[in-house]
Design a protein around this nucleic acid. Structure first.
Lengths: 195, 195
DNA sequence: TATTTATGCAAGTACTTGCACGCATTATAG
DNA sequence: CTATAATGCGTGCAAGTACTTGCATAAATA
């Protein structure tokens, strides 16, 4: 990937996360990239080609991969915190807004599988973790796919809502949210064994 | 509101939730409404005016108001189920997609406060509920704004993810999700008192 | 019946869109 | 230094954009 093409991709992705795919024009992309508009079409097939190459670059994807969940301590509270924080640290408002900006019918079919990779990685890693905790006897056998979905939904939900509405919806900050949520989840999950 | 104007608004809102505000053209709106394009501009100031009148109509807002949370039974498990189900029944994929379609910089500033009303109504109603449950001695005093955010985030998150990815992300169905989530939340909230 | 009102229709405005071309200039590599 | 490739620039295009205008017609209202 040569420097000019990269500048074009970067400019396009930034504009898309600010105003969405449809509203982003090739003229704007060119101006933002500091190149002439026709250069876009020499480097890329068309506008769609630019963003498809963009979403396939590691730099334009939130770095939420299964291996960030590797160093678990098999301590429920500590691990839940790690899972939630790992997602929130990597899924910044920028990535949330980019995901939304890519939600154009013209390309959603092609980008959705990529966007979905992050939730899928989180869910499968976390379900695995719960299963192993169950095998270790730390938590009771439960519907782990459903509970993993609950935990992820609350993690994703907070991230998305914060990115969308900022402090106008809630003044609860990230650390306060993680602390209280994890405490409740940990108790909700482990309590069953105590009975 | 005369019949023609209503047809125009309805057509516009449906198109917007399918392809977003920017990608929806006035020509399409007119065709979908079965009227001539120039009629749009006789009835409304401009394209933006159409959707602003739309979002201000009750029919184009998810009917999540504080009073649907009124008939609480002061039974934690039952009430949590009611809260979550009330939101999910009313916030259909259609409304989720409409909210996303309205996320255009040209009008987000004006629509965001309206879109935010639903989360705000949920959060404040639910925080009130937790406070009253605390006064009744059913649950221990905790950080209720944070925990309300957790509960709402998981409710919203599931709804949003299902609307976005359908069954491709998770096979966990609504009732299964509600049942397991509520059970964990109820235990996570009430358990503190047991100690 | 007479008059207002709502609408359709066709044409046209001014502007933007993605995209293509030729040509001059620069940077790079042999 | 020379040849090749990459780029900037202007121009142009066909189509599409939101929006307007003038006029005919039909329906509702007086």
């Amino acid at each position: 990937m040569d420097q000019t093409s990269q500048k074009i991709i970067d400019a396009a992705m930034i504009l898309i996360r600010e105003k969405g795919y449809v509203a982003t024009t090739t003229k704007e992309i060119a101006r933002a990239a500091g190149v002439n508009e026709c250069t876009l079409f020499r480097k890329f097939k068309n506008k769609k080609d630019i963003v498809l190459q963009g979403v396939n670059q590691a730099g334009w994807r939130a770095n939420v991969t299964p291996d960030i969940f590797k160093n678990v301590k098999w301590d429920l509270q500590a691990d839940l915190e790690m899972f939630m924080r790992a997602y929130m640290d990597r899924m910044t408002p920028d990535f949330v807004n980019l995901s939304i900006g890519l939600r154009a019918p013209q390309l959603y079919e092609e980008t959705a599988p990529l966007i979905m990779q992050v939730p899928q990685a989180f869910l499968s890693s976390f379900t695995d973790y719960l299963n192993q905790m169950c095998e270790r006897g730390t938590i009771a056998p439960l519907d782990f796919p459903a509970l993993a979905m609950t935990f992820f939904s609350s993690t994703f939900g907070y991230t998305f809502l914060k990115a969308s509405f900022g402090d106008k919806l809630t003044k609860v900050e990230k650390e306060e949210y993680i602390k209280n949520s994890v405490q409740m989840f940990a108790k909700g999950l482990s309590q069953i064994l105590d009975e």
